[in-house]
Design a binder for these strands. Structure first.
Lengths: 210, 210
DNA sequence: GAGGAGATCAACCGATCGGCTGACGGATCG
DNA sequence: CGATCCGTCAGCCGATCGGTTGATCTCCTC
C-alpha cells in the first residue's frame, strides 16, 4: 500500500509544522503541502489531489467551512478531516454537513491522529463520541404529532400538491370533510394556508419521514 | 461509584445467558433482569429502572424498535444500547432516531461491550464507524438549489404562509412579479401549487436550514 | 454581439381555497 | 353520563391562486 498523501491547512505555522513533524516521523504518510487559509487549500487540493486534507476551521481569509463546501461542490476525491481545538465546537456539525469526513481534536494523542487519518483515507467516518451525540440529536425527532391520523393523511397529500377534490377521491370522503380536516389542522399548527401547514409539518417532523 | 445496573433483552436464552455471564464475570456491573420481548422489556424497565438496557432489535412479539419508542415516550432514564448481529443492519438508524443511545455488535470483543456500556451509562453515544457514516449521510444535504435567489426568497415567504400580495410588499416588487417567480419555481421544482413547492423545498434542502 | 437567464411588470379569467356556521354519530375518559 | 376529540358531511361567499401571453431591462457568457 502506498503512502497516504496529506494536505495540511491551518493559519498557524506552528501547528502546521507540528503536524508535519508528526506525520513525517512515522512511515505510511506523505505531507504533500501546507496551506494557511481556505482559498489556498482549495487551490492546492485541486492541484495536488491529496488523499486526506487536515483542515482547521477557524482561519482568516476564506474560512474552512467555505473551503469544505467548495471542495465538495467540485467533487474532490480527498477526504476532509476537520481539526478542532475544542470538542464542543459548534462548527463541527455544519462542517460535516458541508462534506467533512470526520474530525480530530488537535490535542489528541499522536496515535489517534494516525488512526484517524488512516480511517478517513479508507473512507470511514471518524467521529468522537461528543460529535456523534450531536449528530444523533440532530437526526432524532422528539415531537409527537399533535395531529389526528386523518389530518396527517390529508396534510401528506397536500404536501404532494393534491387538490381538495383529489384528496376527497383518494380518501373516499367528501370534499367538505377534507376542508374540515384542513381547517382543524391549520388551527392546530397555527397557520392559515396549506403551504405554511406543509412547512410546519416538516419543521415538526410530521412530514419528511416517508 | 456504584455498579451499573443492566437489563438484558433478547429472544434467545442462549444470548441472554452469555451476556449475563460476561457482565457478571467482571466487577462494576449488575444484571437486574432479562426480558425476551419488547413488551416484557418495557414492563421490567419501568419496574426496575436500570441504568442501561441492552436490547436486540429482532424479536417476536413486540419488536425492539417499538419498545425503544415506548420507553423514550415514557421518558425512561435508562440508556438503551441496541445489540445487532450485523453492522449493516438497516434498523440501526431508525432505532437511534427512536431514542437508542448507541449500538453494539453482538460478536464484539468483551472489552468493547464493557466500555460501550460504561460510555452509554455516562451518557455518551456509542457508535461504530459504519453507523456513524450512515448518520452523517443522513444529515448531509447534497443538492445545490436549482432556484434563483429571488425565487428562493419567495419560496421561503410562501412557506411562512405569506400571500402573494404580502410577499410583493415585503420584497418591494409587484404582485405580478411574485406570480412570475412562483410560476418559474413551480416549473423548476416540478409541482403545480405552493404547498407542494414548500414540500419540495424541504426535501431538497432549500428550506429548513435557517 | 447574440443568446440565455434573472428580475421586473401587466391584464385577464376560471379554478380553487379558506372562513363561517351548523350538524351527527362514535369513541374515550373521568 | 356528560365532556371532549375524531371523523364525517353541507352550503355559501369573497379572496386568492395559477395559467397564459407578452413585454422590458440587465448581466453574464460564449
Amino acid at each position: 500500500m502506498a503512502d497516504i498523501s496529506l494536505l495540511l491547512v491551518d493559519d498557524h505555522p506552528v501547528v502546521r509544522n507540528g503536524l508535519r513533524g508528526l506525520f513525517e516521523s512515522v512511515p505510511g504518510f506523505t505531507v504533500l503541502a501546507e496551506a494557511s487559509d481556505g482559498v489556498e487549500a482549495v487551490a492546492l487540493a485541486t492541484e495536488l489531489d491529496p488523499d486526506v486534507i487536515l483542515m482547521d476551521l477557524r482561519m482568516p481569509g476564506g474560512s474552512g467551512l467555505d473551503a469544505i463546501t467548495e471542495l465538495t461542490r467540485r467533487g474532490a476525491r480527498a477526504k476532509i478531516l476537520v481539526l478542532t481545538t475544542w470538542d464542543s465546537d459548534t462548527d463541527t456539525l455544519p462542517a460535516i454537513e458541508a462534506g467533512a469526513t470526520g474530525y480530530l481534536l488537535k490535542d489528541a494523542p499522536a496515535t489517534d491522529l494516525f488512526t484517524g487519518v488512516r480511517e478517513a483515507a479508507a473512507g470511514r467516518t471518524v467521529l468522537s463520541p461528543a460529535v456523534a451525540s450531536r449528530l444523533v440529536s440532530a437526526v432524532r425527532t422528539p415531537a409527537a404529532s399533535p395531529l389526528a391520523a386523518r389530518e396527517r393523511e390529508v396534510l401528506a397529500l397536500v404536501a404532494k400538491g393534491t387538490s381538495n377534490r383529489e384528496i376527497a377521491r383518494e380518501l373516499f370522503i367528501s370534499e367538505a370533510t377534507v376542508k374540515t380536516h384542513l381547517s382543524h389542522l391549520f388551527t392546530k399548527l397555527g397557520v392559515t394556508d396549506r403551504a405554511a401547514a406543509v412547512a410546519k409539518g416538516y419543521e415538526q417532523g410530521i412530514l419528511g419521514r416517508d
